[in-house]
């Protein structure tokens, strides 16, 4: 029993990203938030708890500043908070090893997270974690309800929106859907402030967080847009369509 919800702290989607010395300058980022898809996971985790599926354990992996997302999760109803403190950048296997150790420790049989995080937009964590835990995995869901040990979820599958059934243990990754996020209230905020955070290091979890297999070589600004090109007449449409694919890479 219990729902583990994985929260990643990312620069707010409205934040400007500055780059200096070939690296994203984190000090220029004024606002950090819970990654938007993770918020849908959190909301659905709390709904599941309200329908009787045990406590919500919020887990984040990241530097000291990331603790804020746990407090925010507590303000809307997370019961237990686990912060895996990491400073360096990790590869997907390291992140998944840390998270799977924490999930095992929490005893939760349902894991919820966003379908991808708003910083790298990768989407590796949910399915990777499921595979390393041996849990089933349903991606891109917009809602989950449970009847005993069987969950039914709505997901956007290859052939459209569909309802699927899956047994626990299972990992769900969330898409937006029409989930409405709840607002915190003052009482929740005051209680969240008092809620202890279990801070764990990779060592505590028996995971080697050095020697990432993926290392960042550089960050750079996206190339400046080319000046606009103007074409006359509908005969130019085929050429423009080609440019949309070849130059702009948007279709």
């Amino acid at each position: 029993m219990g729902v583990a919800v994985l929260l990643k702290q990312v620069p707010d989607t409205t934040a400007k990203i500055g780059i200096s010395g070939g690296r994203v300058d984190e000090s220029s980022i004024t606002k950090w938030s819970i990654s938007p898809y993770d918020e849908y996971a959190l909301e659905n985790a709390i709904k599941l708890k309200e329908s009787g599926h045990g406590d919500v354990v919020a887990i984040t992996c990241g530097p000291a500043r990331a603790a804020k997302c746990l407090t925010e999760a507590a303000a809307v109803g997370a019961d237990r908070l686990i912060h895996i403190l990491t400073e360096s950048s990790l590869d997907s296997i390291q992140v998944q090893s840390l998270l799977s150790a924490a999930v095992k420790e929490s005893g939760c049989d349902v894991v919820m997270c966003g379908k991808q995080a708003a910083d790298t937009n990768s989407g590796s964590t949910g399915p990777g974690l499921a595979s390393s835990l041996g849990f089933s995995c349903v991606g891109g869901v917009t809602g989950v309800s449970m009847e005993g040990d069987v969950a039914s979820a709505t997901r956007l599958g290859p052939s459209g929106l569909e309802e699927v059934e899956v047994g626990v243990p299972c990992v769900f990754t969330f898409d937006k859907g029409d989930t409405e996020l709840r607002r915190p209230n003052v009482r929740g905020i005051m209680m969240a402030k008092k809620k202890p955070i279990d801070s764990l290091t990779p060592d505590d979890l028996g995971v080697d967080a050095s020697n990432s297999k993926v290392s960042i070589k550089s960050h750079s600004s996206p190339p400046k847009k080319q000046p606009g090109q103007k074409f006359v007449g509908s005969e130019s449409v085929p050429e423009v369509v080609n440019k949309l694919r070849e130059e702009a890479n948007v279709i």
Binding site: G126, S131, S132, C137, V214
Partner: peptide, 19 residues
């Protein structure tokens, strides 16, 4: 594609980089 490759990479213990 992303889900499958993440899951396969995890089962082999190798890193994945997306998109």
């Amino acid at each position: 594609g992303r889900e499958l490759i993440s899951s396969i990479a995890a089962s082999k213990g190798i890193p994945v980089v997306q998109d």
